[in-house]
Design a protein around this nucleic acid. Sequence first.
DNA 1: GCAACTGGTCGATGTCATCAGTCATGGCGA
DNA 2: TCGCCATGACTGATGACATCGACCAGTTGC
Lengths: 145, 145
Amino acid sequence: MTDDIDQLLITALMEDSRRSLKALAQISGLSSPSVAERLRRLEERGVLKGYTVEIDPKCFGYQLQAIVRIRPLPGQLQEVERQIMAIPEFTECDKVTGDDCFIARLHVRSMEQLDTLLDRLNTHAETNTAIVKKTPVKRRLPPMA
Amino acid sequence: MTDDIDQLLITALMEDSRRSLKALAQISGLSSPSVAERLRRLEERGVLKGYTVEIDPKCFGYQLQAIVRIRPLPGQLQEVERQIMAIPEFTECDKVTGDDCFIARLHVRSMEQLDTLLDRLNTHAETNTAIVKKTPVKRRLPPMA
DNA sequence: GCAACTGGTCGATGTCATCAGTCATGGCGA
DNA sequence: TCGCCATGACTGATGACATCGACCAGTTGC
């Protein structure tokens, strides 16, 4: 269903999604129409969900990054989820099992902003914040084999 | 330094990084050589750090996703960091302030695999695992304005 | 006020994507 | 076992696109 060549193509695109079909053809040893067809099928099957860019938030003044664990007060779960989604500085959020209902990533320009944003949540939830010091593993793919 | 047009280009590429220069030219109202030049400068300045793809880990059998908080035992910090980096199922890891030294994202195919991987860490660290049930906020950009 | 720099357009050229047509292969039923 | 169909690949022609050089307008600093 997803063979070695597909994986080659995916990793090649993971490294640089703007590679031309011709370049991908050379990498995979196929012709470019064949590559185009494979990409089409990978998209169709939902394996390839999109082509995107990585940008550096620091370039927009986001000096701080925090991981926030969020435990809504009784009856406030819906409201808390709504708020998280509505605050664009939350750039990622998972709803998880355990005491902490949500674990979210927050980008802010300053401590003041961090404080302000969390205060808004604190009327509906308890939060626990950890500031990111370093990122030993940058977003990557799990093994496909 | 980074004006409205750059932001337009970035959001356009965020939506689909394979858009042609011509398409980006139409979106931004510039000519395609100008777009090429702007992208070149954005890359050079490190604002645009790369072009990549989103793939669906489920298509490779990764049914479970967990957020793991990791607190190394005394003197084991280096070793734990080394291990996390070496286990490819950890697809993301941040070193943070607070009791939990690391917060990592883990993709696994089964509970057994989850158990196996965490056991390897547990000789050097205490862990606290939360299974992802849902992702209310998918990776997105903070406001650029 | 002028020179140099920045950031843009236009048009020519070569490269690339795409489409139609063709062919090899593997699985399946007659 | 033979023939048939479906799949997935290749090739070559055509049109779209990226790229490069030449040129131009607006700004800054001297």
